[in-house]
């Protein structure tokens, strides 16, 4: 149902292996340190789809910002393929909860930001069109962001990330603001995009069910400062059904870990 981008990507780059080695991080809040991450040790396999679950405000997004290279941890190290992550790079792309499209650029020009910033705009025209087609926005290429629905805007943000052939896709609750129907469609699309390209995905979400439907492994974090609390391997074939008894059982298990015993 989604046209593959394979024709333009000669060899889909293998996903990054991501390692968090004893990572701690804190922010300054009115001059006082606010610890957000404490001694996180976590390994993500190349091409793995990992979900991060945890109470809101626990530091999940911070972990993504460290993996994206937007911040450096106070202690420990984040690594991609064994090399320390020292700054942002288009091979590790972050998609935010807000689509954060540049409102002064058309949809197509938004998707073109990555190639343009790297000075390969002229050579990337076809890739940009393919990325737009991949997220089914080719008819809206010349529209401006304020003319898009929430789901379309998030798909445009996804195309803007995917056009760079990322080896690590960091998704910070990318579907959090969408209505439930759009959300279901987008979940399927995320899954099929990943299954074609096989980049590594780290998905931060609040939605246990979403994590179970999409990911191969779920890491549950504690309250702030976040530590790894539990890991749940979801070794079920795709596509998954939300009423599958194995999904229901794991959902129960995770909710109990998070402190809901219903």
């Amino acid at each position: 149902m989604v046209t593959p981008v394979a024709g333009t990507a000669p060899q889909p780059a293998a996903g990054f292996a991501v390692d968090f080695r004893g990572v701690s991080h804190r922010y300054d809040l009115d001059g006082r340190p606010l610890p957000v991450l404490q001694q996180i040790d976590l390994t993500v396999q190349p091409g793995e789809f990992l979900a991060l679950l945890g109470p809101s405000g626990c530091g999940k997004s911070t972990l993504l910002r460290l993996a994206a290279g937007l911040e450096k941890p106070v202690a420990g190290e984040a690594q991609a393929d064994g090399a320390a992550i020292s700054g942002p790079d288009p091979s590790r792309v972050l998609v935010f909860q807000d689509p954060t499209l540049f409102p002064w650029r058309s949809v197509r020009d938004n998707v073109a930001v990555g190639p343009q910033a790297r000075g390969i705009l002229a050579a990337s025209q076809k890739r940009i069109d393919d990325a737009l087609r991949l997220v089914k926005l080719d008819a809206f290429a010349s529209a401006f962001p304020h003319q898009l629905s929430g789901g379309m805007a998030q798909r445009a943000a996804l195309a803007r990330a995917l056009v760079n052939d990322p080896r690590l896709l960091l998704l910070d609750e990318p579907l959090g603001r969408l209505d439930s129907l759009t959300r279901l469609t987008m979940q399927e699309e995320l899954l099929s995009l990943w299954r074609q390209a096989r980049y590594t995905v780290i998905l931060v979400t609040h939605d246990v069910e979403e994590a179970l439907l999409l990911s191969q492994r779920i890491v549950v974090l504690t309250e702030r400062p976040a530590r790894v609390k539990a890991e749940v391997v979801v070794d079920l074939p795709y596509p998954r059904r939300r009423d599958d008894p194995r999904i229901v059982a794991r959902r129960q298990e995770i909710l109990e870990t998070l402190g809901f015993s219903s």
Partner: peptide, 11 residues
């Protein structure tokens, strides 16, 4: 957030 997005895309 605009700067964050642009930086992760290689700006």
């Amino acid at each position: 957030a605009y700067y964050d997005v642009a930086r992760t895309l290689g700006a």
